[in-house]
Write a protein that binds this DNA or RNA. Structure first.
Length: 812
RNA sequence: GCGGGUAUGGCGGAAUUGGCAGACGCGCCGGACUUAGAAUCCGGUGUCUCGCGACGUGAAGGUUCAAGUCCUUUUACCCGCACCA
């Protein structure tokens, strides 16, 4: 193999000189915005995961360009965040210094990969020219009433000294350091994503996304339709609502449960039960997430002393508090129907509360309690005999007639907590003035700069609080002394709009020009890991919808099509990690083989959407593949291309047919991110060419042209290598400016094809027919075959099946 | 518990709407070249069988002329959510 990393360098230099990857918004061709999730510049170098994400995606972008699109394929860095800060705490190196250095290295390596990025359209979220607009976004949300502050129990990681989003808590533990997460009350900023719950759910229908990812989002949003029912205190001195999806079971309510944290509790608890209730509240507050999990099956609770009246049957039922009811879902209170709910059943058994059956199965069989299916109502007065569905409707009607209830929808989705008690993030643009209170920073004063010299070692306080220079400011309203908000924004805020910044990345007057973004967006193909299914991908959708409603965008969804790449595991089949010692570094391979060998092996050796354990054995196969191509180019470069009118024999018709099939199939394969099969097909074509070359009557013109096409086909997959071979074929312009080869229909239909013939569903023979023949002609040809006539003569043919152009089957 | 995914040779993996199972590659076996090896090239390679042929896509059943693909039941592993009323 001649190809090596030196060839990579040669072309990288030339491409740079030629400005090959300069993006021109006015170039011809339909716009095509293809984007990979930008990366976090944590380590100093690109790891295998980066390569697997970005290499094939870049090939895809190059392919789309060959197809004639004006491809926009930017790259940037999600540069704020915990790891840089943790690294700084450990080493003393300032996050800004390490991050900027990492970005430089990664940019260089992405260029060395042969990536088609125009760095003039790039974002680095930690730079003031970017986070100014992240803050602007906050201001806009604030003014629209979509950002608010609230005291809330949050997930606190005592090791990282920070609040975690629900999504960052894995099984009650911190996603980064795995220490146990505690509950703590802090005043926090929230974005009102719940306002968009219904639209976020609805919009999924329009998206070309993997179904599994849509399901994750549907689950995350967690829409649940039911009813709200009002229960009044027995003496009418208080009332509260419960949410239920099974209002048909309301006659089976034997008690009510309220979340311990709920405000209602204080109002309703009777003096004699106060002590027990207070103790219980204190106990549960102490429980952290882990304890709550471990007590999963053991439910606890106490009686409040209060009774309420069931609005449907006037039963008097006790009110309990128990920690299996969550404060922040529904109304924080539930009607307990132990006969028809597993949790209520367990609880009732434990505390000897009555169990009243009100639903029977439809087939009347003697079903066991708790019976959680729908069925026929019993013990329910006038509702007896109705089905669950009928009863639901009737009961809600009756309730609402008396103002005691109504249909209601609940979502599991919670508002997005965006405050972080951390240094390395965008400061929240809020000022607290003694006189004016909470004041949002005026847009013209943005950005609120993140100071460089700050003590960011964690002690439970926000690091910015310790910077006088940062904290002290004047109130924009009254000019008096004021303090800044010391918290920074969740980095998911930074990444919730970056795709909108790329097309107009240098605009210093606004986050993006409306006209430019509306032309360029949405992203046509978005590529990234499925670990972002719930967070990033929901936040971005939310932000797009908010900006649309504020009049900045005229589209509803940021990412039209979504593709998830798989993950390359360590050779042992486990996730790569330094602690397991199973990491694989791309560098040694690139050093040894060159970047195209590595890139194409990643594409050929793994299913892009699936990934798999790393195995380097196949890499040598790629060397063989390249060597064969080099030899072939060597052979044909001496050919007489002017050699015009040679008869194209059957063998060559076959070759031309295969060539066109390959063009077609590789196109659809690359479009579907099936690089492995695309490359396999190119190998088939290569093998066919070589097979013909072994014989002696070479049609130089046909072979030469086929090789030219072949190099074009592999150009997006092996950019440096193809460029080199293209030059060796005598071309002086870049192969990356070539168009994807057209399909020649007559060549595609030339040559012959085989029709399988089955008897009783078993393959018996294949009949060779002219590929250009009509389906009827083929059938005629088949029936004229000696063997088929023989079968008809000797056997009793019961049935004859002919799938036009595909298969012929006889049942005898 | 709920939701989703995966299962095909010794291995990685292919198989439009049901239509030739195992493409392509690795590995292995044989041959050529070589003093020898490496490299390269050629041929073979699902299982059983000398062969004819039979069997074969996690397991069991079903639909069909025809099933890796559709239906029912089931097993193993992986991922997401998880007291959501």
């Amino acid at each position: 193999m001649n190809y090596s990393k030196e060839i990579d360098k040669k072309w990288q230099t030339k491409w740079k000189e030629q400005n090959l990857y300069k993006y021109d918004p006015n170039a011809k061709g339909e716009k095509f915005y293809t984007l990979e999730m930008f990366s976090y510049p944590s380590g100093a170098k690109l790891h295998l995961g980066h390569w697997f994400n970005y290499g094939p995606s870049d090939s895809y972008a190059k392919f789309k360009k060959m197809q004639g699109y004006n491809v926009f394929h930017p790259m940037g860095f999600d540069a704020f965040g915990l790891p840089a800060e943790n690294y700084a705490i450990k080493t003393g190196i300032h996050p800004e210094d390490s991050t900027l250095k990492n970005i430089d290295t990664m940019k260089r390596q992405l260029n060395e990969m042969g990536g088609s990025y125009d760095w003039d359209y790039s974002v680095e979220t930690c730079m003031p020219n970017y986070y100014k607009w992240t803050q602007w976004l906050f201001v806009k949300l604030y003014k629209a009433g979509l950002a608010y502050k609230k005291e809330a129990p949050v997930n606190w990681c005592d090791s990282c000294k920070t609040v975690l989003a629900n999504e960052q808590v894995i099984n009650g533990k911190c996603e980064r350091c795995s220490s146990v997460v505690e509950r703590k009350k802090l005043s926090q900023w929230f974005f009102k994503i719940t306002d968009y719950a219904e639209e976020l759910l609805d919009g999924l229908k329009t998206l070309d996304w993997p179904e599994s990812t849509k399901k994750v989002q549907i689950n995350w949003i967690g829409k649940s339709e039911g009813a709200e029912v009002t229960f009044k205190g027995e003496s009418g001195d208080f009332e509260f609502n419960v949410f239920t999806t099974r209002v048909d079971t309301i006659n089976g309510v034997t008690y009510i449960v309220v979340a311990p944290e709920s405000e209602i509790v204080q109002k309703i608890t009777t003096p004699e039960y106060k002590e027990g209730v207070d103790n219980y509240i204190k106990e549960t507050a102490k429980l952290n997430e882990i304890d709550r999990l471990s007590t999963e099956t053991v439910k606890t609770g106490v009686f409040t002393g209060a009774y309420v009246i069931n609005p449907i049957n006037n039963d008097k039922v006790p009110v309990w508090i128990a920690d299996y009811v969550l404060e922040d879902y529904g109304t924080g209170a539930v009607m307990a129907v132990p006969a028809h709910d597993t949790r209520d059943y367990e609880f009732a058994k434990k505390y000897n509360l009555p169990i009243k059956r009100v639903i029977e199965s439809k087939d009347g069989s003697d079903s066991k309690l708790p019976y959680t299916e729908k069925g026929i109502l019993v013990n329910s007065g006038k509702y007896n005999g109705l089905t669950s569905e009928e009863a639901k409707q009737k009961i809600v009607n009756d309730l609402s007639a008396n103002n005691n209830g109504k249909n209601s929808v609940n979502y599991r989705l919670k508002d997005w907590l965006v405050s972080r008690q951390r240094y390395w993030g965008a400061p929240i643009p809020i000022i607290y003035c003694d006189r004016c209170g909470e004041v949002v920073v005026p847009e013209e004063d943005l950005p609120v700069l993140l100071p460089y010299n700050v003590e960011f070692r964690p002690d439970g306080e926000s690091p910015l609080k310790k910077s006088e220079e940062f904290m002290n400011c004047t109130c924009p309203k009254c000019g008096g002394k004021a303090k800044r908000e010391a918290d920074t924004l969740d980095t998911f805020v930074c990444s919730s709009w970056y795709e909108l910044r790329y097309p107009d990345a240098k605009n210093d007057k606004m986050p993006f020009d409306k006209e430019i973004i509306n032309k360029m967006a949405p992203v046509d193909t978005y590529i990234g890991g499925k670990e972002h299914a719930a967070m990033h991908l929901i936040y971005s959708r939310f932000m797009t919808k908010v900006l649309r409603d504020l009049g900045y965008l005229n589209f509803d969804e940021p990412f039209k099509r979504l593709v998830h790449q798989g993950m390359i595991l360590g050779p042992d089949g486990n996730k790569m990690s330094k602690s397991k010692g199973n990491t694989v570094s791309p560098e040694e391979y690139i050093e040894k083989y060159g970047s195209d060998i590595f890139r194409i092996y990643l594409m050929f050796g793994f299913d892009y959407k699936q990934g798999g354990p790393w195995d380097e054995k196949g890499i040598e196969a790629m060397v063989r593949y390249f060597t064969k191509i080099e030899k072939l180019v060597e052979t044909v470069s001496s050919y007489d291309k002017k050699d015009i009118d040679i008869e194209v024999t059957a063998k060559y018709k076959e070759l031309l047919r295969l060539k066109n099939q390959t063009i077609k199939a590789m196109g659809t394969d690359i479009d579907n991110f099936q690089f492995n099969t695309a490359i396999a097909r190119s190998m088939e074509l290569l093998n066919k060419i070589n097979e013909i070359l072994r014989e002696d009557d070479v049609n130089q013109k046909v072979i030469y042209n086929t090789v030219v096409t072949f190099i074009k086909l592999i150009a997006p997959l092996a950019p440096h290598f193809a460029e080199e071979e293209w030059e060796r074929l005598g071309y002086t312009t870049s192969v990356h400016k070539e168009a994807w080869p057209d399909i020649n229909e007559s060549e595609l239909n030339g040559g012959t094809k085989e029709i399988p013939v089955q008897v009783n569903g078993k393959l018996k023979m294949r009949i060779c027919v002219d590929a250009g023949m009509s389906n009827e002609e083929i059938l005629k040809e088949i029936k004229n075959t000696k063997e088929i006539i023989e079968i008809f003569d000797t056997c009793n043919v019961k049935k004859e099946i002919y799938v036009p152009g595909k298969i012929y089957n006889l049942v005898v």
